[in-house]
């Protein structure tokens, strides 16, 4: 089943969930409503035409306010973009899901943006979501054990945020 007909089927079975797509991109992607990511994932995994049974990667991209020199050129408003790369071991095909989140929940600095967890769909999401939580500061609703994974548990801040500043010291160790 090729791109456009598959997209039609998805849009009709998941009304309102898919709000954008680009099948001509280098990696064809669909954009979904953040709150319905788990539902769309479940559908993509179970639908016989696709069977995207393997989650490869979860990435959070921090589209931070551009600096003054570039501000005129860019069109984006500050936000976080979540990118899920899926792979089907049956059809040997891939698809990308994208979804947008605010940088902070309710625009209150320090309040992590929230998105439903997909651990119930693919178990590999467990560690990947922990990593995204750890480095990019995204809260995954429904994750069974959301702890830092790469940084120490008492680390402060989210290093892959664009406005992150390395602490001066960590337990008496000079950090910068």
């Amino acid at each position: 089943m090729r791109g456009s007909s598959f997209l039609e089927k998805a849009s009709s079975e998941l009304p309102g969930a898919i709000i954008g797509s680009n099948l001509e991109a280098i990696d064809p992607w669909i954009e979904v409503v953040a709150e319905r990511i788990a539902e769309v994932s479940q559908w993509l995994k179970k639908t016989p035409e696709s069977l995207f049974d393997s989650l490869e990667c979860i990435t959070a991209i921090d589209w931070f306010e551009p600096d003054a020199k570039k501000a005129a050129k860019v069109q984006w408003k500050p936000h976080i973009e979540m990118v899920y790369h899926l792979w089907s071991t049956v059809a040997r095909a891939s698809i990308v899901i994208k979804t947008n989140l605010p940088r902070w929940k309710g625009d209150v600095v320090g309040q992590l943006p929230e998105i439903p967890s997909v651990t119930g769909v693919w178990r590999t999401a467990d560690w990947h979501e922990r990593e995204v939580f750890d480095l990019s500061g995204i809260f995954f609703i429904g994750h069974p054990d959301l702890r830092r994974i790469l940084c120490p548990e008492d680390w402060v801040g989210y290093p892959l945020r664009r406005d992150y500043e390395m602490p001066l010291e960590y337990h008496g160790i000079r950090a910068r």
């Binding site: 280098i26 490869e56 990435t59 991209i61 990118v83």
Partner: peptide, 20 residues
């Protein structure tokens, strides 16, 4: 402008890189 994701078969498995 754009993004690309690619996985290759490394000795330990599929190593993926994503570039924006």
């Amino acid at each position: 402008v754009g993004d690309a994701y690619l996985e290759t078969e490394c000795p330990r498995g599929q190593m993926g890189f994503y570039l924006v």
